[in-house]
Amino acid sequence: MSGGNARPRRGAGAWPAFLVIAVLLGLWETWARTSDSASILFPAPSVIAAVLVRELRSGALVRTVGATLGRLASGLALGGVPALLLGLTMGFSPRVRAAVDPLVAAAHAIPKIAVLPILMILLGLGEAPKIAVVAAAAFFPLLISTMSGVRHISPIHFEVAHGYGASAPRVFWRVLVPGSLPQILSGVRLAFNAALLITIALEIVAARTGLGATIWLAWQTMRVEELYASLAVTSFLGVGFNAILAFAGRRLVPWHSTPEI
């Protein structure tokens, strides 16, 4: 049993990606340093990195990211939990689905940011309307993924459970939840990405704190390198969360031969 190593090596795919990014950053750096016009709109990566280090030292970065993550997390929780519950119910019950589906389709199509002014009139100018908008953005992707996760469970699994006399709670925990978990997790990812986008967008139009506000302020004062620094942090947040979810997916859905996440 020696020699033949049939198992594909973990992470074998990561190096080419790093290489591509490194080469692109190198080219960008060289270009920005040699061309004056480029450095105005496209400051060198080293300049952007210096801004990040400075803001990290001063504590500004932590405050900014904290404000954004606060809105993001509250919105995700506020929108995600009802989305899960309603999604499971709609997946399971054709009657509830028929009753609610048209409403969901209609509401899903509305750009959530467009509702912000109305919510600000209703909920005031504080954090509440912003979190409500993030919640709405997170709600729909998770709802739809959860529902389709339940609907894709093969009917035979419910029949087997009933055949062995499983109680309703057992069917819920042993069939419904694990059976829809792969799609729920990809729904969480979609919800996070939608919530991150909307958080940045509403911070641009209606907040004084957070990454979106920082981006907008940097643009208005033509501190382009600060704008890029905020964009880089946003991108890091996205990559980081998706990596965490991929890891969680491998842990939570170990039976999947090819994880969907």
Binding site: V160, V175, W255
Partner: peptide
């Protein structure tokens, strides 16, 4: 179709 639960 045997109906094994893939998650168990």
């Amino acid at each position: 179709e045997h109906g094994l639960f893939p998650w168990m």
